[in-house]
Structure formats: C-alpha cells, structure tokens
Amino acid sequence: MLASDIVVAQNVAFGIIAAVMVLFALRVVSSSNVVHAALSLVMVMAGAAALYILLAAEFVAVTQVLVYIGAVMVLFLFGVMLTRAKLGRDADLNNKNWAAGIPVALLLLGVMVYVLIDGLGDDKLDVTSGTAASTAAISDLIFSPYILPFWALSFVLLAAVIGAIVLARKD
C-alpha cells in the first residue's frame, strides 16, 4: 500500500470512530435509561481505545480496555444496581433547568474550536512514520523521571480504596 493510501485509510477509520464516539457520547448524556447510558459509555471508551491505537499508543489502548471497559464500567453497573435506579426508562434523570447546560457547552465548544483552528491550523500529524511507542520506553519514563507522580498515584489509589471501604461500609 502506498503511504497516501494509508493516510486515506486512516482518515476513514478516524471518521468512523469519531462519528461513533460523538454519537454514543450524546447518548450517554441524553439517554433516559441509566443502563443504556452506561453501555453507551462503553462504546465511547472502546472508540477512545481504537483512537489510541491509531495514535500509535498500544499500551495505553490496552490499559484503557482493561481499566475502563473492564473495571470502571463494572463499577458503574454495580453503582446503578445498588442505588436501585430504575432499570427501565426514567424520565427524571435531568435537572429542572437542564437546558442551561446547552448554551454553556456550546459556548465552550465554540471557544475551544476557534482556538484550536486559530492556533494549530492545519498542522500535520505524521501517523505513518510514527514508531509505535514501546511499552519498555514508557515504563522507563514511569519508573525513573516520573516516579514521584507514580507514587502519588499509588497513594491516591490506596487512599481511594480505604476511603471507598469506609464510605460504603454499613455500620
């Protein structure tokens, strides 16, 4: 395949993934069924993982699948079940003045898109020549220059585990 073909293929892939992600993301925030929203979120996560592969970050993609789709989503479904949200339709998921969110979001979007187009214009992203980030290189970074954030993260996770137990424990 020619390099240009690859670019075309990538653009097509990106288009499909992006469309899927935006569509399901909208469903996450608009669905009136909590479980549907959660499943839509799975699709968005999966789309993100696919994007990471497109961006030559396999390890992050794998982690995304493992942690987000594997663990976080299970947590969410448990949360939904334990709080006994109605598994069917629930018209009462939105705030009374939910509509106020639309202009705010649109305003934010407008500002950001304007800034991005203004700032980065048509900077190319050379996906074809990008070497896949080796997991070894990432681990070198994590465990030597970025070890302090890594420890901080470990500590946060520990605190979160203890905190979650303390909070959710029935006394």
Partner: peptide
C-alpha cells in the same frame, strides 16, 4: 444551594472568561 446550578454558573463563567481572553489576545 443546588449543585447543578452552581456548576452551570461555574462552567458558564469559565467559558465566558476564556472567550474574553481569546478575544483580547487575538
């Protein structure tokens, strides 16, 4: 005292502030 409303105001204010910054700097 409603969190949702506070959030809307917060994000709205942030968006407006960002807009102003962009307009001033461009």
């Amino acid at each position: 005292g409603k969190v949702g409303m506070y959030g809307t105001l917060l994000f709205g204010a942030a968006a407006v502030a960002a807009l102003i910054l962009v307009l001033v700097n461009s």
